[in-house]
Every structure is written in C-alpha cells, then in structure tokens.
Amino acid sequence: MKALQRRTLLTATAVLATVGLAVSAIPAQAAEVGVTATGIKLGMTLPMTGTASLGYNKIPGAAKAYFDYLNANGGINGRKVTLVVKDDRYVPTEAVAKTNELILKDKVMALLAPLGTANVKAVATSVNPARRGVPVLFVNTGFSGFADAKKYPTTYAVLPSYIMEAKIMGQYIKENFAGKKIGLLYQDDDFGSDALAGFKTAGVNFAVKVPYASGSQGAAAAAGWITKFKAAEADVVILFGVSSATSAMLGTAAQLGYKPQWMLGSVGGDATTIKLTGVPAGVLYNAIGFSPVPATTDMTDEYVKFFSDIYAKAVPGSAFDLNVLLGMNTAFMAAQALKAAGPNPTRKS
C-alpha cells in the first residue's frame, strides 16, 4: 500500500514536471491581485452617508491618515498602501453590491474593516470572500461568530466580542452593583443576542430587558423605553446598542429628568459621537464605560499621542475620537499584517 502510494506520488510529480515545462514558457505568474511593484490596494465598505453613518464616517479618513503617513515613510517594502472606500449606507444588499465592485472592478487585495454584522454576513453569503480567497481583515463588528475560522476562513475579527463585553460588564455589576435592579436596552438582532448570551454566562439577572429592532430607534421610541425602565424601578440601566440608540436614550432622559446609573456599551459609547447629536456632556457624567484601547484624551499614551498628531495634520479640525482611534489602529494592524506577509505579499501569505 505504502509503495503504491509512493509510486503514484512519483508519477504525479513527473506529470507536474511535464506540465511545468509548458507553463514555464509563459511569463511568470502576475503578482497577487491588488499588489503591484509600487502599491497595495485595499477596499472598505461602511456607511458614509445617511442616518447610520454618524461617527463611523470618520473611520476611512482615520485609516487613510495612517496609510498616508506610512506611505510617506517608505510604505510596505516600498509599496504604497491605498484604500478604496465605498458607501453602503448600512444596507446589506448594497454592501454586497459594493463589495463585488471592490473585488471585481477595483481589484483590491483585501477588504479592510467592513462594518456591521448583517452586512458582513450578507457579504460572506453572497460575495463569498472565502471562496475567492479574499482576506476580510479586521471586521468592524463584535459579533462573536466571525472569529470562527472554520466558517469564515478568510475573515478576521478585531474588536472584542459583544459576549466578552457583556461578561466583563456582568463582572463589574457583581462587584459594584450587587443587589441593585438592573435594566438592559439591547438591539434585537445578533448584536443583542451576543450580549444576552454574555450576560447569561456572567449570571446577571435583569429587572427589565428592552429590545429594539434595528432601525426603530429614535426619540419617540426612547420615551417608551424610559417608561419601561421606570416601571421596573431600574437602578442601573445598560445601553447595549448603537450610537443613535444611546443618543436618543440619553437625550430623551435628560429632557424627562430621568437619571439612573448609566452603563454604556462600547459600540454606542463614543462621547464625541453622542455629543454631536446634541446630548449635553453632563448627562454622561459618571456613566460607566468600556474600551479596549486607551482613552482618546490620554496624551500620555504613546499611540494616542502619535495617532492624534497624524490625524490632526491629515484631517484638521476633526475631533480625535474612538472611531478615529480604532480606525487608525486597524490600519496600523493591517500594515503589520502586510509587512509580516513577506517581501511579495499575497492574499494567502
């Protein structure tokens, strides 16, 4: 059996050698898609316009600011990194169409930081980057499923998962708010189901849970949420939703004089974005928040200082917030992945 196998192997090699002869007559295979002698092209889809774009539309500018700095300092082994950005307005079918354009027309090497669980899943299903061998680097969603290398072999998570965040919140509640009545506002989709799973693991018992369907959030809805939290006499209210939900809730609560102990999930917890919607800064005071990266105002941190200096020069007048920091950090990690991929990076390497 073993001998037979070896013989098969030998002949197969012989065939390959024969075939190889013919192939070698053709000029060497072109470099990887999206990679030339002078450049590397990456593509990004995210909401740049429309109601869902608030805050997120600063991410491409942040990533480009870092890539521009990188390119001015030699790029990746001499190759300049360019980023093609397409607006999907947070609509899954549009994300599919725009991602197809990035892969087929713009011929990008990899997708960088596509945003939104539904959109990334729609792209995984209908564009199928895995089948095409296209890397999806550092998706901008904390949905735990995208870390599954078997199901999404070319997709890489970067944000800590919503489950992790909920578990850490749960730990904090146990240590600091034991015996208090806890309320939870969450998005009624995979984002929220991840959160519920995390809180369950952490053993948090809620006095009240209020789901909202994605897209239904607004001031009118927030008034209804507050009624529910008040009725349940919640002491601590966790806002585990997107920025527009957090803002609607905090803005409406300020108007109604409703002041529980707030706890904000990182997705909807960027202060700059919340304040942009007209929520007074004071409303946020003493709320509990969570972040994987340093505080955006912490200029003693070498990264924050470095990134904010680059950003201030590249996009003058734009506030350095969590979206910017995460956008630049993602670009920074992508640069390292490209550098680590060797002198002639390929999708596979």
Partner: peptide
C-alpha cells in the same frame, strides 16, 4: 439561519 441576520431589520428583529 443566515438570512435572519442579514434581513434582521426588514424582519423586525429577533423577537418578531
């Protein structure tokens, strides 16, 4: 299983 995530908003959320 997959479609409910992608069309979550049009399906009015997990509860629905």
């Amino acid at each position: 299983d997959t479609e409910r995530v992608i069309f979550n908003a049009a399906l009015s959320g997990n509860t629905v």
